[in-house]
Amino acid sequence: MKRLTTHLTQGLDTVFAAHGLNAASFDVLATLRRSGAPYALTPSQLMDWTMVTSGTMTNRLDRLEAKGLVDRKKSAQDARSVVVQLTVKGLDLINACVSDHVVNQNRMTEALNAKEQEELDRLLAKWLAAFEPPDD
């Protein structure tokens, strides 16, 4: 499992690096993209989705903001809070990266046929359920 994880991580990191990202920055940008237009979430929502601490999220957001990929804006609903929003540059970048990411994921799983992929997915979900409670 460790050896397979190493190969998969290297495969993912290669695609992210080609876009000037790492796994952490991809995670934040992809989470904002999945949120739908206007591609904005509060830092707390991002922390919940990405399962990182406040300090880690602040560091990630600082770096993404410095690259012009996200903006922090005062919330229209609550002047005390902030929302993090993808910039046009950030949206263009994550769209291109996600397209390459999907191609890469297909490449990395092509050793298994469709039936084997379905079976692996079922088995991994069963195994994961032993460690995580089901969603309600």
Rank of each mutant, 00 (worst) to 15 (best):
N22A: 09
L21W: 06
L46S: 07
T58H: 09
D92A: 10
M51W: 05
R72C: 00
L32A: 14
D136F: 11
P43V: 03
L21T: 14
R34Y: 08
A40T: 15
A23E: 15
R34V: 01
K67L: 12
D121T: 10
K74I: 10
N22P: 14
V83P: 00
T9V: 12
R122F: 12
K89Q: 07
A17R: 15
V84M: 00
R122N: 08
H7K: 14
T50N: 15
L8D: 05
G11C: 10
K74A: 05
V102F: 00
A129C: 01
G55Y: 02
R107H: 12
P133D: 15
F131W: 12
N22C: 12
T87S: 06
V28G: 06
Q85E: 05
V98Y: 01
E119Q: 12
H7Y: 14
R80N: 08
Q117I: 03
L4T: 14
T53H: 03
Y39G: 04
E110P: 00
D136Q: 08
T56H: 08
P43E: 07
G55C: 04
K67C: 06
N106H: 06
M47K: 11
L29T: 15
T14V: 05
V52G: 04
V52M: 11
A125L: 10
M47D: 09
H19R: 11
T9W: 06
D78C: 00
D62Q: 11
E132W: 11
S99R: 07
A130F: 09
A79I: 06
M108T: 02
L46Y: 03
N113G: 09
E119V: 05
T50F: 01
D92T: 09
L8A: 14
H19G: 09
N95G: 06
R107P: 03
A30H: 13
T42M: 07
A66Y: 03
M57L: 13
L41I: 01
L123V: 02
S25E: 15
L21N: 08
L12G: 05
A18G: 12
R60T: 02
T53K: 08
Q117N: 12
H7F: 14
L46C: 06
V88C: 00
V98N: 04
L61K: 01
L61R: 02
P134C: 05
